[in-house]
């Protein structure tokens, strides 16, 4: 009876984490198109939310390990999962308050690691795995995406330099909306999987589900809906930082950075290392600013009026 209570609590908390994941990462896909006016804010978050849900439902296989190899999986108990989720939620909310685009996956890993250290001692954490799976990707991912975005931006401006900007801009708006949609879809697939994995693990640990089986349909649907709702609610604070705070984005840059982001995420997922969507898209946006260094900057074009 008490175990069932704890399981229910953990599932609810996992869905809350999924929700914060959604609104924290909404900006990854949609900050660009909103900043340039390629999509109106409401349209953008609705589109991103729908694609998130679709992306979450597309993923049939759940992440095999939520621990990411940071420690022995046998150490994961239901209270540790609960504590880890809690740490992740609180950290997500605090960075959201400050408008900081930080990684939701890192928050989840961090929470779990902290919980394991308290529960099983610091020696149970594999330090080198943290270096190779957290520190290195956190440097490499934005760098790769940034270089890709810089080159794509340079190319986009080069190709269209003789086209009247009014014409090329309307084309780039469609391009930007499309690449942003790809990012939203990829995000739903990768991050939806994480929550499904957590819930499935808890169900297995509580003997409510035979081990080695995938998530039941209701888990897929609720996890998809939670992340979609989170995305729909916007996370406007992070959206502002990513759309305006880093560089002023123009439509060609937005299209280029979205393309670089989705290419990097999809390629890395295919190669089997999970990069942080947030790091990749932040790197792309930075890179698109670098790529435009020689391009005209239409200072003061106000999107609001």
């Amino acid at each position: 009876m008490t175990e069932l209570f704890v399981v229910i609590v953990v599932i609810v908390v996992a869905l809350i984490f999924d929700f914060t994941n959604g609104f924290h990462d909404s900006a990854n896909a949609m900050a660009g198109p909103i900043a340039t006016g390629a999509l109106r804010p409401r349209t953008a978050v609705i589109l991103a939310a729908l694609l998130n849900v679709i992306g979450a439902c597309l993923s049939t296989e759940v992440a095999k390990t939520i621990s990411g190899g940071f420690f022995d999986d046998a150490l994961i108990t239901v209270p540790i999962i609960l504590a880890g989720l809690l740490g992740a939620i609180i950290w997500n909310l605090m960075t959201w308050l400050l408008g900081l685009p930080s990684s939701s996956s890192h928050a989840l890993f961090g929470g779990l690691i902290g919980a394991v250290i308290v529960g099983a001692g610091i020696s149970s954490v594999h330090g080198w795995v943290i270096v190779s799976k957290v520190l290195l990707p956190a440097i490499v991912a934005p760098l790769v995406a940034g270089i890709g975005a810089a080159l794509a931006t340079r190319l986009a401006y080069r190709i269209t330099r003789k086209t009247p900007s009014a014409q090329s801009n309307s084309g780039f708006k469609y391009g930007q909306a499309f690449t942003a949609s790809m990012v939203a879809l990829a995000h739903g697939t990768s991050d939806g999987r994480k929550t499904m994995g957590v819930i499935t693990l808890v169900l297995i640990a509580a003997n409510l589900q035979p081990s080695g089986t995938g998530p039941p349909l209701w888990v897929i649907i609720t996890a998809g809906l939670a992340i979609g709702l989170g995305t729909y609610s916007g996370g406007w604070r992070i959206m502002r930082t990513m759309g305006k705070g880093i560089v002023e984005i123009e439509t060609p840059q937005g299209a280029a950075s979205g393309a670089a982001t989705s290419a990097t995420i999809l390629a890395s997922a295919h190669l089997g290392f999970g990069l942080s969507t947030t790091h990749v898209s932040t790197g792309s946006i930075l890179g698109s600013g670098v790529g435009r260094a020689k391009a005209p900057r239409f200072a003061g074009v106000s999107l609001a009026g």
């Binding site: 609960l82 504590a83 880890g84 809690l86 740490g87 992740a88 609180i90 950290w91 605090m94 960075t95 930080s102 990684s103 890192h106 928050a107 989840l108 890993f109 961090g110 929470g111 779990l112 690691i113 902290g114 919980a115 250290i117 308290v118 943290i130 957290v134």
Partner: peptide
């Protein structure tokens, strides 16, 4: 992010 969440997670 990672150590921060770890701190909260540990306390939790």
């Amino acid at each position: 992010t990672l150590p921060g969440a770890a701190l909260v997670g540990g306390l939790a």
